Simulated scan of single mutants.
Amino acid sequence: MIDYDDAGKILSEMVQISRTFRIAGQRSGEQSFSGTRFGFLQHLRTCDSRLGELAHRLLISAPVASRAVDSLEAEGMVERRPDPLDARASLISITDQGRMRLAESESSAVQRFAESLDGWSQEESRNAISLLKTLNVHLRALTLPEESTEVVPAPAAAQEVNESETPG
């Protein structure tokens, strides 16, 4: 088991990273894309979803999700349509405009991030990816219901990293 002090140091570094990204996002002039709105568009890029599914996916409350979707809809980035499986529900879909803005935002963010990591070797990058994926697997337990006993072993995550990082 990890040492308590080391766990505290890791948590402190993660909080610092979170602050850094929040401040960098504010300074970039792209304040219109909060983490929630950005996360919704990323998810909707691959599939339409109900509001509750989006809230669950980003671990936020339904009212916060609703406000974010309302805002995205007002800007023409998403649209609601009736759910064919349940007429009382709506499916939320990303629009072409939303796809374009998401691609632009991602490209800009990745470019700035890559520039900040100038000097990293390929090995350092791969090690960071592996550690972060493993960390996310372990942290996922914090989001599961207390009665859940679901555990995803870390080696599976590391294997996933190695397979996905192989040049192709």
Rank of each mutant, 00 (worst) to 15 (best):
I94N: 00
L41H: 00
S121H: 06
E75W: 04
I17E: 11
A65S: 10
L139A: 14
A114W: 11
Q42W: 00
V110Q: 11
Q26S: 08
A158S: 10
V64G: 02
G52Y: 05
S93P: 02
A157P: 11
T36P: 04
L58E: 06
E30K: 11
M14L: 15
G29E: 00
N127V: 15
L135Y: 08
E146A: 13
V69T: 10
R19N: 13
L91D: 01
R19C: 07
A114E: 11
R57V: 09
E146V: 12
S66F: 07
S66E: 12
M1I: 06
T46P: 00
L139C: 14
V69K: 03
S71I: 06
D3Y: 07
P145Q: 03
G168D: 09
I17A: 13
G39F: 07
L51C: 06
F33H: 00
L54I: 05
Y4E: 14
Q122D: 15
E106G: 05
A65F: 03
D96T: 06
S164G: 07
E73F: 03
Q111N: 10
K133C: 15
S108F: 11
R67A: 07
E104Q: 14
G8R: 12
W120R: 07
V152N: 09
S125I: 12
T20N: 08
S34Y: 00
S116I: 05
V64F: 05
P153V: 06
D118M: 09
P82T: 12
G39L: 06
D96K: 04
L54R: 03
R101Y: 06
L132H: 13
F40V: 04
E13F: 09
E75Y: 02
E53S: 09
W120G: 02
I60K: 06
S93V: 03
S108H: 13
F40A: 02
G29C: 00
T166C: 05
